[in-house]
Design a protein around this nucleic acid. Sequence first.
DNA 1: TTGAAAGCGCTAACAA
DNA 2: TTGTTAGCGCTTTCAA
Lengths: 363, 363
Amino acid sequence: MASESSPPAGPSSPATPRRRPTIREVARRAGVSHQTVSRHLKGDTTVNEQLAATIQDAIEALDYRPNLVARAMRNHRTGRLAVLLPPGSAISSLEILSGAKEIADAGEYVLEVVTVSGSAEMRDRRALELRDSRLFEGVLALTSLSDLPQPDDGRVPLVTMPLYDEAMRGIGALASAGPEHEIISRLAELGHRRFLHLAGNYAHAGAMRRRDMYLQTIEELGLESAGVVDCGWDGDAARRAVADLPADSGITAIIAANDILATAAVSGAVRRGWNVPEELSITGWDDTRVAAVTTPSMTTVAVHHAELGRRLMRHLLDVVASRRRGADDASDPAPSPLEDDWRLAEVIWRESTGPAPQTPPAR
Amino acid sequence: MASESSPPAGPSSPATPRRRPTIREVARRAGVSHQTVSRHLKGDTTVNEQLAATIQDAIEALDYRPNLVARAMRNHRTGRLAVLLPPGSAISSLEILSGAKEIADAGEYVLEVVTVSGSAEMRDRRALELRDSRLFEGVLALTSLSDLPQPDDGRVPLVTMPLYDEAMRGIGALASAGPEHEIISRLAELGHRRFLHLAGNYAHAGAMRRRDMYLQTIEELGLESAGVVDCGWDGDAARRAVADLPADSGITAIIAANDILATAAVSGAVRRGWNVPEELSITGWDDTRVAAVTTPSMTTVAVHHAELGRRLMRHLLDVVASRRRGADDASDPAPSPLEDDWRLAEVIWRESTGPAPQTPPAR
DNA sequence: TTGAAAGCGCTAACAA
DNA sequence: TTGTTAGCGCTTTCAA
């Protein structure tokens, strides 16, 4: 350690120095104080132009680049935010991320995506570690955390919007099934009376909520349900469910829990010689990119994940900014990101749905 | 600012201290030296059990959590890696990322995804800034960068594997079109002679390469091409292309540049009353999740993005580890991540392809 | 406009 | 087993 600032005399003494240049080496080479170099780096215009040029030369000659860790240690600004996700990588979370990233980029922030796993207690601890690590200016948690205390002692904001449980299954806003109600109501208006639901994997809150919403809406509107088939996101199961339907089931509409099940259901129907939507209406969920071009094109629900990510990130940036301004507790309460009338999800009507057939079942 | 270390006398003097507790406060409260606290934090077992308990109490009482920036400054370990991407978010990049993340997690590393934009020069600069920022122990660049110098002076490794151009369009390994050759060869074996290609947006290297590979293979095998239709990823264009085909075109196989175009092509064929694959074989690319359940299910190409991410990250971790071991230049050259016979992409044969019809065209 | 001194919070090295 | 000292590389005082 002691011999480090002078040329190393060890056996592996190379031509290039083994240590990275610091602001002091730059200063020495430019014949100024390290402080002046610091000012120059900061873009301080009070630095003499001549000197600035000399310093710049030294920087380039030494291939100097600032140590951001040291800088962060002094000025408490890192330009970084952390996003907490549960392990696994549902495509929806990646879309949320890309929306969040977009906003963070615009705010000159860099995002760090951190996976937090383990028990609720461990996740809480990890979240607090990150919040207080001084590596970040803010933390956005998309995992479910306990209601953690947020002391006003210079700690950085931790914004929580639980979207996923520990197994990366959508909860909260993501699991909302409102559009299901809209779909069934509209189909009822089109004359449909008897429905079937192809359910997803109930481990996902969304699948559960869609099933519940299905049953609730059927009851609310006085319609009939021929049942709920648990497909667990398995397309084959959905295809078989339709293939095995009794000819006189009287079903004229199938509500599938996602586009894969819906597409598979179409496949099952077509193989039986049923026309969609003339004899059977089918709906999906997710608005996958293929859904627009299948035969027939699929009525489905688009979930605006990226926009959700944008909103969450905007909210975090608001909070970070207001904290930085030293806003006292109640002064500037950034609004919840989902409070206005924005719709997270939206029904996309396409060819796979139509009026109920005149003569219902018996094919 | 000056009044921070003593109790603030200002108007907003709260009950909670305005400053975060440090290791020294913990030490004071526990009646030990800050060094002992540091040791305890490190899990050093030489610390007296009684003392350890006292220290732990103090930590909890003060709600202390270590400043990772300060720690990194001393020990030069941050446990973080950076991944560089161009702005935008191709779905493939998200898959690569999730594979990379998986490996990073296993190695106790946290990933930071950094977007680098601007000119080639600016991107190079930003990459070097990050490499030398001391915030990361390694950098994985998926963007195209110049051939940057990698001095042996304690700088952290920067591994480059250009997969995307500045506009987030796949290049390099991602744009490889090898499987196209396999598809066409097999279809030729099945008796197909006359082909049509539905091309994507040529701004994407992948679309370009697939078209080139199509033309090259057709020529190589002495087959006929009825042409290349530029669809630019637009499903409607693909559907129209098939819908508008002359009845006597003689085409028995369509090679589409992705699953959307392929699915749309099926739609166009079905609307004309052509059966797929009995009268027309159609292939896609991407193996989207829906491709397995469309009617008919789609022959396509699965690109193993997540595995690519895993391999790249393994490679980076290898390099990081060997550097840390102080490996001199040539000692332990971590192998290139893509050198072995692993196939990035794979043809998935499904129902949309079959033998050429006995009596070719004239429908 | 520039320089000197102090210190951010932590850990490595040494001393006790 | 514990404490003391030094210093990581930078920026913020404050003085010249």
